Amino acid sequence: MKLPKPRKRGDSYRIELMFNGKRISATRDTEKECEQWAMLKLLELKTNQNNDKENVRQHYPLSALMLKYYDEVGRFLKSSRVAKITIRRFIQAYPVLAETSIHDITPQMLTDWRNSRLKQVSSGTVLRDISLLSSIFSYAKKELFLIEVNPFSLVSKPTQPKSRNRRIGESEIDMIIKAHNYNRGQVPTETQHFIAWVFLFAIETTMRQGEILSIKRSNIYNDYIHLPVTKNGDVRDIPLLDSAKDLLKLIPDNGTDQLINISSTTFQNMFGNRVRKLGLVDFHFHDTRHEAITRLVQKRKIPVEILAKITGHKTIGILINTYYNPTATEISRMLNESN
């Protein structure tokens, strides 16, 4: 049997064989390595050294598996938007790996991808990517029965990044609301106004962006907001400070039960663009949660066990070490005030 010619795919080469009507492929760094693999594979198949059922498998690109996973699993997750974006970017950025058959993907290939990714983004982002990709391979193993081993089980994960301790200063708050053409106490009438309002409301309540955008008018009570669905799957009631109540009074009745009619995609795109134009360093919307929690402890003297009820944290250590971020000066002031 004449060997097919390897085809160049990005920085690698791919070769395909047909045996008994089934396609088998492999990706290697050079043409010679592809040809060597093909000769050995043909010899292996012809001499029946391995069971055909286990070793002659239909070509199943990783990209096809990723899209199938999203369609059947990912789109139903709370993090569906993130999963969709991650899958799309992976297929675009790593076409050779994306078109490699899942039967041929090795831990070494995924390790090379991990190292390449770490040069572009933070270790935290890579960890999230690995979590999604590992779930996709587990889906192929446990639900589709296409593979016997999840290759990510042999890939080392990067070191967990240190917890963020980014606080938001009053001057930065002023910059954010000004960038959205909003003034404190103003009734929001435009999308940019509502985004600034959500930013201010987050600082007054410790609520996440998605939680605020999901608020129903029917779940707003005199002293609290009821959240039937949260990130960790539990229900939660958010007590309202007077400052938060004043902000709620500014929202006009839009005739629906939805308090804020802005999609998560629109919100993140607009907010992210304004932050980049302002040139704020290492600034994320989620930092409002750090700021809000720290303010509750400092200004309201909220005990940590009550604080956990407000924020929805099940692990006190994560709440204290990750989200409560007083500066050394602030701690000194608190110690002196107690004397």
Score class of each variant (00 low, 15 high):
residue 77 L to F: 14
residue 47 T to N: 13
residue 191 T to H: 01
residue 334 M to E: 14
residue 85 I to E: 15
residue 320 I to D: 01
residue 151 P to A: 06
residue 3 L to P: 02
residue 228 P to H: 02
residue 114 R to S: 12
residue 261 N to Q: 14
residue 161 P to F: 06
residue 312 G to K: 07
residue 187 V to T: 08
residue 2 K to P: 08
residue 42 L to T: 04
residue 121 V to G: 11
residue 115 N to T: 12
residue 248 L to A: 06
residue 125 T to R: 08
residue 135 S to R: 09
residue 138 S to V: 03
residue 238 I to C: 04
residue 265 T to N: 14
residue 25 S to I: 02
residue 274 R to Y: 10
residue 239 P to S: 07
residue 317 G to P: 00
residue 247 L to A: 06
residue 293 I to P: 02
residue 224 Y to I: 00
residue 32 K to T: 10
residue 46 K to V: 12
residue 329 T to R: 08
residue 314 K to W: 05
residue 159 T to I: 09
residue 207 M to P: 00
residue 47 T to F: 09
residue 325 N to V: 14
residue 209 Q to I: 00
residue 241 L to D: 01
residue 14 R to A: 07
residue 313 H to I: 11
residue 217 R to A: 00
residue 124 G to K: 07
residue 48 N to P: 03
residue 271 F to D: 07
residue 83 A to P: 07
residue 102 I to Y: 13
residue 325 N to G: 04
residue 224 Y to T: 01
residue 280 L to W: 10
residue 285 F to P: 10
residue 135 S to C: 08
residue 76 F to S: 15
residue 246 D to N: 08
residue 260 I to T: 12
residue 338 S to H: 11
residue 33 E to Y: 04
residue 282 D to W: 06
residue 3 L to R: 01
residue 122 S to A: 13
residue 2 K to S: 07
residue 257 D to G: 12
residue 191 T to E: 03
residue 25 S to P: 00
residue 153 S to V: 05
residue 279 G to W: 13
residue 69 Y to S: 13
residue 12 S to Q: 05
residue 193 H to V: 03
residue 242 D to L: 07
residue 289 R to V: 11
residue 312 G to C: 09
residue 300 R to F: 10
residue 33 E to A: 09
residue 68 K to F: 11
residue 178 K to N: 09
residue 132 L to C: 05
residue 180 H to D: 03
residue 335 L to D: 05
residue 6 P to W: 05
residue 249 K to M: 09
residue 111 T to E: 14
residue 192 Q to D: 06
residue 245 K to P: 05
residue 33 E to Q: 11
residue 48 N to V: 11
residue 167 R to L: 07
residue 87 I to P: 10
residue 294 T to P: 06
residue 73 V to H: 14
residue 19 F to R: 02
residue 239 P to W: 07
residue 72 E to Q: 15
residue 243 S to Q: 09
residue 220 I to H: 00
residue 147 I to Y: 05
residue 274 R to A: 15
residue 115 N to A: 13
residue 5 K to F: 03
residue 199 F to A: 01
residue 281 V to N: 13
residue 118 L to F: 11
residue 147 I to A: 04
residue 71 D to T: 14
residue 271 F to G: 10
residue 19 F to Y: 13
residue 223 D to Y: 01
residue 214 S to K: 03
residue 281 V to Y: 12
residue 79 S to H: 15
residue 61 P to K: 13
residue 104 D to C: 14
residue 237 D to V: 05
residue 269 N to P: 04
residue 211 E to V: 03
residue 112 D to I: 14
residue 211 E to T: 02
residue 280 L to C: 12
residue 87 I to Q: 11
residue 219 N to V: 01
residue 267 F to W: 11
residue 259 L to I: 14
residue 50 N to D: 10
residue 189 T to G: 08
residue 130 I to C: 06
residue 16 E to N: 03
residue 134 S to E: 04
residue 193 H to Y: 01
residue 232 N to S: 04
residue 26 A to K: 07
residue 323 Y to K: 07
residue 255 G to V: 10
residue 206 T to A: 02
residue 52 D to R: 13
residue 140 A to M: 06
residue 5 K to Q: 06
residue 62 L to G: 05
residue 87 I to E: 13
residue 121 V to E: 11
residue 262 I to E: 12
residue 1 M to N: 03
residue 284 H to D: 06
residue 65 L to H: 11
residue 217 R to W: 04
residue 291 E to I: 10
residue 134 S to P: 02
residue 53 K to I: 13
residue 290 H to L: 10
